[in-house]
């Protein structure tokens, strides 16, 4: 082959032809860094599996121990005293539902109004920035402090523990979560829909009422349900606001039982009957909370 007839190679081509044939693009599987990668991948699988163990264990215990006492009496009877046999958690279920209902009635309207202000009316004002920031801080607030606050602000003033005080404590926890999720939902409503309404001569109230709220409704409801689910499982704020009671609730100004406080009280008792009831109450509580969570997933499917 004649060398002379070939055009002279440019510097780059020379380098390429010199290097390319020698490159081995196959990674050696026994190279240190490849083995490191395989090892780490295995470790990750292990850690992830480990992360799933607690949940499975909790669910197993709830079904086995809590399921053992599932019967109509569980829902209709009052908690047993010390050595008594049988009994149920009827008043605790009632108490949990009542306190959560009070909390929802107090916090949802206020949270929606605040969210409308934050998302629609003056989103960039100082007031909005502060309210938003404080809501975020409030969501990270230890829930027991809501109990301490309501004890000082309501229980001392009213002179007694009450279902109302418990509801107010839960409302303090719901307010920031509902506000922030509702604000997020309203911000997702396309601006052109609102602009169109304003262009047709709607007032701000009409825009919010007939355009923003209906469009954002599924996401808003999702946020509300998730907040309800969260506070339904709360116990720390109820400890010294709603206290506990062994009887049915007659008025919201009386102390009331709740599922979470019943679990807490019964878990430290030396009687098997109470421990069994604590497990059944846990099962009922988890079913309520998970039920709300699943409900929120169905409603929250994007529809726009």
């Amino acid at each position: 082959m004649s060398v002379v007839s070939e055009p002279p190679l440019s510097a780059g081509q020379a380098a390429a032809s010199a290097v390319v044939p020698n490159i081995n693009l196959q990674r050696n599987p026994f190279e240190l860094r490849a083995m490191q990668s395989v090892l780490l991948t295995g470790g990750t699988w292990l850690v992830a599996a480990l992360g799933a163990v607690p949940l499975l264990s909790v669910i197993y215990m709830l079904l086995v121990k809590g399921g053992a006492r599932l019967s109509p009496e569980l829902f209709t009877e009052l908690p047993p005293a010390g050595f008594e046999i049988g009994g149920g958690i009827g008043n605790a279920i009632q108490g949990t539902l009542v306190t959560v209902a009070i909390a929802s009635a107090l916090s949802i309207p206020l949270a929606l109004l605040a969210a409308i202000y934050l998302a629609e009316l003056r989103p960039d004002s100082h007031l909005a920035n502060w309210a938003r920031f404080l809501s975020k801080v409030l969501t990270g607030f230890p829930s027991i402090l809501a109990g301490v606050f309501v004890y000082a602000a309501v229980v001392i003033v009213m002179g007694s523990y009450s279902a109302l005080a418990g509801g107010i404590a839960l409302a303090v926890l719901m307010l920031p979560t509902v506000t922030l999720t509702a604000e997020g939902a309203m911000r997702m409503v396309p601006q052109r829909m609102k602009d169109a309404a304003i262009g047709m001569g709607c007032t701000r109230a009409q825009v919010v009422w007939s355009v923003t709220l209906p469009t954002a409704l599924p996401s808003v409801v999702t946020g509300i349900i998730l907040a309800v689910a969260r506070v339904a499982g709360e116990s720390a704020p109820l400890l010294f606001t709603a206290l506990f009671s062994n009887y049915w609730l007659r008025s919201v100004t009386e102390p009331t039982a709740s599922l979470s406080i019943l679990i807490f009280n019964f878990s430290s008792m030396p009687f098997d009957n109470q421990i069994e009831l604590a497990w059944s109450a846990s099962l009922v509580l988890v079913l309520i909370v998970l039920g709300f969570n699943i409900l929120s997933r169905f409603i929250g499917r994007p529809q726009v």
């Binding site: 607690p54 909790v58 709830l62 499982g233 709360e234 679990i263 846990s282 509580l285 988890v286 909370v289």
Partner: peptide, 12 residues
Amino acid sequence: MLAAIPSVVFGL
């Protein structure tokens, strides 16, 4: 779902 389990249930 782990986040949805109430604190007292974890305690128990």
